[in-house]
Simulated scan of single mutants.
Amino acid sequence: MRITFIGGGNMASAIISGLCQQPGQQISVVELHEDKRASLQAEFGVTALAVLPDRFAADEVVLLAVKPQALQAVCQQLAPRLHGALVVSIAAGVRLEALSRWLGSSRIVRVMPNTPAMVGKGVSGLYAAADIGEADRRTAEGIMQAVGITSWLETEGGIDDITSVSGSGPAYVFYFIESMIEGACQVGFSEQEARALVLGTFEGAVELARQSPLPVATLRTNVMSKGGTTERAIARFEAEGVKAAIIAGALDCRARSVELGDLLSKDGE
């Protein structure tokens, strides 16, 4: 498969890293910054370009990995060069209708990845219009499965939904980890000890949740005993509205995703 990445930032690098572990991939990256081009070429052995190729073929994939604010200009440069190539966009916010208008093509798949793709543990939501063929869907899915698990979304609004769960979700988890590390330090552990203890606790809890047939709520109550230490901690979380705040925050995240989609999908001046 021939894939050209437009943009060589962190997420593009993560996907390239995953793809390079699969045989038969021909990967190019268009990246403006010379030092980044050199780094990508040295690390992954890809072809690093300073400018867009003159022409793509219908059996190629063009993966858009530039900042959303720059996407319209990039798409307008790409439009006369595509010649039917499949476009996969990981740019947040910019909707299919705008991408299709700017590119002059409807052969597009939108993807919402997340940062654990950098360690091969990503979660990516994918959406394509109904007229996108099964082969193109498999191609896009295969690219993202190189860095984790994938989920097809029934509507484009599902991109906003999954942003609030998986797209932004790692930040929620890091926030909780950060808080637990601070708490561990306050009871006397060093920063290094606290980090190891908290990360180990998260890893163990996630693996238990993955392997257990029990609901997560039951796993939580199994740790608690009447009048015990865990019950006291959870009682404080409930009194402070921690669960409600997390849910509200996720919904606020979704609302902001919709707002940004409205903004970023407009034509620039």
Score class of each variant (00 low, 15 high):
Ala14Ser: 13
Glu178Val: 00
Val165Tyr: 05
Gln72Asp: 04
Ala92Arg: 10
Trp152Ala: 05
Phe237Lys: 02
Val88Tyr: 04
Asp136Val: 04
Val88Gly: 02
Leu251Cys: 06
Arg101Val: 00
Gly7Leu: 05
Glu207Lys: 12
Ala58Met: 07
Gly125Cys: 03
Ser212Tyr: 05
Ala128Met: 10
Ala205Asp: 03
Ala128Ile: 06
Leu153Val: 10
Cys20Arg: 14
Thr4Ala: 05
Gln192Asp: 15
Pro116Thr: 03
Glu238Val: 12
Phe44Asn: 08
Val66Leu: 13
Gln26Glu: 14
Ile27Phe: 03
Leu153Asn: 10
Ala146Asp: 09
Cys253Met: 11
Tyr127Trp: 15
Ile159Phe: 07
Val258Tyr: 02
Glu231Met: 03
Ile247Arg: 10
Arg236Thr: 15
Trp152Pro: 06
Gln41Thr: 12
Val223Asn: 08
Asn114Ala: 12
Ser164His: 10
Leu260Val: 07
His33Trp: 02
Gln69Lys: 11
Arg107Gly: 10
Phe176Arg: 00
Gly9Cys: 13
Asp131Trp: 01
Lys243Thr: 09
Leu99Thr: 01
Thr47Arg: 09
Glu178Ser: 09
Ser168Arg: 05
Ser28Tyr: 04
Gly169His: 11
Ala70Tyr: 13
Gln145Ala: 02
Ser225Arg: 06
Ile132Asn: 10
Val29Tyr: 10
Arg232Thr: 13
Lys121Ile: 00
Arg220Asp: 00
Arg101Gly: 06
Asp252Asn: 13
Arg195Thr: 09
Ile181Phe: 04
Leu251Glu: 15
Gly93Leu: 06
Met144Ser: 10
Ala65Met: 06
Cys253Gln: 07
Gly261Met: 07
Val66Gln: 13
Gly261Asp: 06
Gly204Asn: 09
Val51Gln: 14
Gln211Phe: 08
Ala245Phe: 13
Gly24Asn: 08
Ala12Gln: 12
Gly261Ser: 15
Ser89Tyr: 03
Gln26Phe: 01
Gly228Phe: 15
Arg220Asn: 01
Val51Phe: 09
Gly228His: 14
Arg256Lys: 15
Leu208Val: 02
Ala171Tyr: 07
Leu32Cys: 11
Gln25Gly: 04
Glu182Thr: 08
Asp54Val: 04
Leu96Arg: 04
Lys67Val: 04
Gly188Lys: 12
Leu32Lys: 06
Leu40Gly: 12
Ser257Ala: 15
Ala73Lys: 12
Arg101Trp: 01
Gly158Leu: 10
Glu43Pro: 05
Trp102Arg: 00
Ala245Trp: 13
Thr139Trp: 03
Thr163Met: 10
Ser190Ile: 00
Gly125Tyr: 07
Arg55Ile: 03
Leu263Cys: 05
Asn10Met: 06
Gly84Leu: 01
Gly167Tyr: 11
Cys253Ile: 11
Ala65Lys: 02
Leu49Gln: 14
Leu199Cys: 15
Ser124Cys: 07
Leu208Arg: 04
Gly120Pro: 09
Val29Trp: 11
Gly133Cys: 13
Gly120Trp: 05
Val109Asp: 11
Phe5Gln: 07
Thr150Phe: 04
Ala245Tyr: 14
Arg254Thr: 11
Asn10Gln: 11
Gln76Val: 08
Lys226Trp: 01
